[in-house]
Simulated assay, not measured.
Amino acid sequence: MTPGSNIPLPAARVAVDVSAPVRLDVSGLLIGADGKVRSDHDFVFYNQPTAPGVTHSNGAAADTITVDTAAIPGDIDKVVVTASLDAPGATFAGTEPTGTVRDADGGAVIATFTPPQLGPETALVVVEVYRRGGAWKVRAVGQGYANGLAGIATDFGVTVEDPAPAPATPAAPPMPAAAPTLGAGKVNLDKGRVSLQKQQTVSLVKNNQPFQASLRMGLGWEPAYQGKNIDLDASVIAYDANRKKIDACYFGKLAILNGAIQHSGDNLTGEGSGDDETITVHLAGLPPEVTGLVFAVNSFSGQKFSEVAKAYCRLLDGTTGEELVRYDLTGAEPRTAVLMCKFVRQFSGEWEMTALGDFLDARTVRGMVKPGGRAL
């Protein structure tokens, strides 16, 4: 699984094993519609190994949270599985924990997930088992915290008796991490235009229906210094479920995937109002093997983004021109490329857009392929 993706559970009882090369403390939290536990009894860990429908067990290679969905109380929306490092002061840098979801009775593996590009985090939400429309699903999360398990527990409403833990703050990883999925759920398009900040996610759903029409991604920028042209190139890279590149659309290849994705052409200056380059995506025309899209901008001539002002991307309804989502890039860095946003296709068919805003050094779309795959 990739961060933010979800799949339905084929079994009523599932076990989530969390393993790593080092010792981990694994826990489960029963979360209600308000994004909080009902009481401290909904915090399941080695010293409190049971709660309604949820148990904790230790294994030689991994700790396990077992979820019996049939026994989960009706006022619980999801079970969040977390992991923290046992060694004091240790971080996840260089450590790759893996969550394995399996049938608790038959043992068959349902899914695996390894959160990408971890660094200063000391705890993280690995996966969540959640209820949606009467059915149960599992979502890959991978959200890191800098203040340990106490930070996660506090964020979900568990009383922590240790001295004054700071409010939970997601650690800023060196590379894109999973979009935050904590709380009562993602924003959708029902309330009109959505303004995103870095690492925020919007579900492309309106009136309980996945948006399946044509979308237009507009990317724009202005020179930071009057009279100086800025030649940037917008692109989109399509990936499969294994984060492998399928194709890329940019000024040198204006249509890919039988026309399902089309590029407007190169803008050499950045002058003028409105979008400098646009990329149209016909969602219904995308082949099923495309599960991720990453939109990027790079400077072929080597100019730095510190010379760029008002860079943004905005998502429009390709038919009506209505602006649906906007992400204004702030805090430009003196580097030559930026990952603007990503789309991830959910098992249900809906797409989710996450704002990225991660800078790197690459002058062509070829240099964006590997970082884009890691961002998914």
Rank of each mutant, 00 (worst) to 15 (best):
E128Q: 05
P165L: 03
G106I: 00
K137M: 15
P88C: 09
D103V: 03
G106S: 11
I152F: 10
V138G: 09
P97T: 11
Q143I: 12
L149E: 12
A140W: 00
F156I: 07
Q117T: 09
P115W: 04
V127W: 01
D103Y: 03
A164W: 07
G133V: 02
R132S: 12
R132K: 13
V141R: 04
A104C: 01
R102S: 07
V129M: 10
Y145K: 12
T98Q: 06
E96I: 07
A104W: 05
A150R: 10
A146P: 06
V125E: 07
G134I: 02
V158H: 08
T114W: 01
T112F: 02
P165R: 13
T114F: 02
G134A: 00
A90N: 13
V160C: 08
Y130P: 01
G94F: 02
L118S: 08
E96W: 01
G144Q: 03
A140K: 08
T95C: 10
G89H: 10
G107P: 00
W136I: 03
V127R: 09
Q117V: 15
V141E: 00
R139C: 09
R102P: 07
W136E: 00
P115H: 07
F113I: 10
D162K: 05
W136F: 01
G157C: 06
D103M: 03
G99Y: 07
F113A: 12
A90K: 15
R102K: 14
T154L: 05
F156P: 03
L124W: 15
V158W: 03
R139V: 09
P115Y: 02
F113M: 14
G119P: 04
G89A: 13
A93F: 02
R102T: 13
L124M: 15
V129L: 12
A140P: 02
A104R: 00
P88L: 06
D103G: 03
P97N: 15
G134F: 07
T95N: 04
A146I: 12
A153L: 11
N147T: 11
E121T: 15
A108G: 11
V138E: 11
Q117L: 05
P88D: 12
V138D: 02
V101T: 09
E161H: 15
G151D: 11
K137Q: 14
E121S: 15
I110C: 09
D155Y: 06
T95F: 05
G133C: 05
P165W: 05
R102Y: 12
E121N: 14
E96P: 07
P115F: 10
T100P: 05
T122C: 13
R102V: 03
G142T: 12
A135M: 15
D162C: 12
R102C: 04
F92M: 06
A140Y: 10
R139P: 02
P165K: 15
A104H: 00
